[in-house]
Design a protein around this nucleic acid. Structure first.
Lengths: 298, 298
DNA sequence: TATGATTTATTCCTGATGGGAATGATCGGC
DNA sequence: GCCGATCATTCCCATCAGGAATAAATCATA
C-alpha cells in the first residue's frame, strides 16, 4: 500500500470529516479509505481518529500527523510539479559530444539557434574526435561521422559528408598530376588515422572500384590539422567538405581526380537507448534533423 | 508499490552509486531496486539516472528529485519519530469523564498523582453525571458508577461504592426512627433520579429482600446536592460513601437501618474499544487500578 | 419504542502486483 | 578474449489492494 496515498486519504478524511466523503473525492471506495487509515495507524502505532459511525475527530496524534502529512504531500507534489514544469520547457544541462573540427566549423549556427531558442538549457558542448562512452560521461547526444561501430546506442542518420581529394598548387608544382588513383602511389599522402583503412584509399568511377595503396609522412586524427598540413604543401589528403570546399573555391586547393568519387561519410546523431529521453535532448535532436541540410547532404 | 520506499531506494542508489549496494542496504533484491527506480521514472516522466552496468550518474532531474526526496523522507521519518517518542512518554491531551461529586471528593488525589507523574499530558477533566458519548466528544476514558447500560465500550471494574441510608438527628427528632424498610413509608425520602428505581429502595438482610416504596418532595441528579438536602434536614437519603462517611463519623448524620444492607454500586472505568489505546489513557487507567483501594472497596 | 437512513468495519473474492531466482546483456579489467 | 560485476528482464508465486456485500452502530424520526 502506498503510504503517500495513505497520507493523502488521511488528510482528506480529516478535512472532509468523513471517510465516505474522502473516498468520493479520491475516487475510491469507502472500504479502501478505512484500510488506509488503519494502515497508517498501525504504521505509527497509534490511533489517529476517534470515530463513531457519525462523527470523526482527530486524536492529538492525528493532529500532529496532519501537519507533517501536509508537508510531505506538498513536497511530493512539488517534486512532481518541479519536474513537470521543467519538462514543458527544456531545462537542465544538455551534454553533447561533437567531432571537433566538424563541430567548430559547421555546427555553430545550429548551436547558436538552440541556445537562443531554449534559454532554460545549459549546453555543455564536448568537442572530441573520440567516440566517448556516452552514459558514463552523462552525454545525452553525440554526433558521429563515419561508419558506426555496433553498440547499444540508438542512431539517427542526419545525412552524409562529402570528401574531396585535394592538394595545393604549390605541392603539385613539379610533380605529375595524378590522373588515376594508381598515380597516388608516387605522392605524399596525408592520412587520417581514425578511419579504418589507413593504408589505402578507395575510389569509384564508372569503370568500377579502384583501391589505391597510399603512404606518406604524416598521420593525424584531426581534420583541421590535416587541412593545415595540406595548406603547408605537405601532400595530398582526403578532406571532408567543410575543410575542402572553401579552399577549392578560392583556388588555394586543387580538387584532384574529379572523375573518381570518394565514398561520402555518414553523419549520425547517436544517443543511449532510454525509456525517457529528456526534452532538452529531444529538442536538440529535432533541431539537428531540421537543419541537417545546412551541414550535410542527404 | 510504496512511493516512500521508492524514494528511499532512489536516495540510497544515488548515495551508494549502485543499485546492488542500495539493495543490500535496504535488505531487498537488486531487481526490486530496478523496479522502484523505474517506477519513479515513470511517475515523474523522466529519467533519473544515466546508467551503465558499471556507473550510475544522476541526471539533472535526478539531482532535483534527490533534494526533494530527502526532504520527504525526513518529514516522514520525523512523523514516525515524533509519534514514537511522544509514545514512550505519554503526551497529548487526555480527556476523562468522571461523575461530578465522586470525582471532586475522591478522585483528586489520584488526579494529582497522575498530573505529577506524567508532565507531558494535559489532563482535560470533564465532570458530569451524564453518560456522555465518549468517542464523539473525544473522551478516552470515563468513570461510571452504577450498572452499565450495554454498549460497545470496554469496561474495567475498579470496585464498588458502598451506600448508606442517612438523615440528620434534627430531621429525625420528633419522628419515629425507622426500624425496618417498611417504616420508610412514613418518611420524607430524597431521591436520586439517575438510578432506575426512583420509587423504591431495596434492602437486604439475613431474612431476605425488602422492597420499600418511598416518596418524597425532592428528586436530584447530583450526589452533592442530595447530601446538601439531607444536611438541610429535608429527609432521608441513600448517600454514597464519599458523601456519607464523614458525616456519620462526626455525628452530623445518623446511619439508619444498620442491620439492612443496600446494594453497593459498581465502579467501572469504561473506554472505547480501539486497536490503539493511547499511552496516556493506558497509564491513567493503570493508575486508577493501582489506587482503586483508595476510593472503592473491591 | 421501532424503523429507517447513514456511516464505518469486516468479510470474501478476484485481479493486480511486488519480490526474488534465474537468465540475459553489457561493460570494464586482466 | 575471458571473467567478474552490474543492471534489465522474465517468470512465478505469495501477497495484497480494491470493491461488493454484509454487519454493526448511531442518530433522527415516526
Amino acid at each position: 500500500m502506498d503510504r503517500i496515498d495513505c497520507l493523502r486519504a488521511f488528510v482528506r478524511c480529516l478535512e472532509g470529516g468523513s471517510f465516505s466523503v474522502a473516498a468520493n473525492e479520491l475516487g475510491i471506495g469507502q472500504p479502501a479509505v478505512s484500510k488506509r487509515i488503519a494502515l497508517l495507524e498501525s504504521e505509527f502505532g497509534t490511533q489517529l481518529f476517534f470515530r463513531t459511525t457519525r462523527k470523526l475527530r482527530p486524536t492529538p496524534e492525528g493532529h500532529r500527523i496532519y501537519d507533517l502529512a501536509r508537508q510531505i504531500l506538498a513536497s511530493f507534489d512539488q517534486a512532481r510539479v518541479n519536474i513537470e514544469e521543467n519538462s514543458l520547457r527544456p531545462s537542465g544541462t544538455l551534454r553533447v559530444s561533437v567531432p571537433s573540427s566538424f563541430g567548430r566549423r559547421y555546427l555553430m549556427p545550429v548551436i547558436a539557434e538552440y541556445v537562443r531558442a531554449y534559454q532554460g538549457v545549459r549546453l555543455d558542448l564536448r568537442f572530441s574526435e573520440r567516440f566517448v562512452n556516452l552514459v558514463e560521461e552523462g552525454v545525452e547526444l553525440a554526433l558521429r561521422i563515419g561508419k558506426l561501430e555496433s553498440s547499444t546506442l540508438v542512431a539517427r542518420r542526419l545525412g552524409t559528408v562529402q570528401r574531396y581529394l585535394v592538394a595545393t598548387p604549390d605541392y603539385l608544382r613539379g610533380r605529375a598530376l595524378p590522373r588515376t588513383p594508381e598515380d597516388l602511389d608516387a605522392h605524399q599522402c596525408i592520412i587520417y588515422s581514425r578511419l579504418s583503412s589507413a593504408s589505402e584509399w578507395i575510389f569509384d568511377s564508372e569503370h568500377g572500384r579502384h583501391v589505391a595503396s597510399i603512404d606518406g609522412p604524416l598521420l593525424v586524427d584531426d581534420a583541421d590539422a590535416m587541412q593545415e598540413a595540406v595548406m603547408q604543401h605537405l601532400g595530398i589528403a582526403i578532406l571532408p567538405e567543410w575543410c575542402a570546399v572553401a579552399g577549392i573555391r578560392s583556388g588555394e586547393l586543387q580538387n584532384l581526380l574529379p572523375d573518381f568519387s570518394i565514398a561520402a561519410l555518414p553523419l549520425h546523431a547517436v544517443y543511449p537507448e532510454t525509456h525517457w529521453m529528456s526534452l532538452r535532448a529531444r529538442s536538440f535532436l529535432d533541431l539537428l534533423i531540421k537543419r541537417s541540410g545546412q551541414f550535410a547532404t542527404s
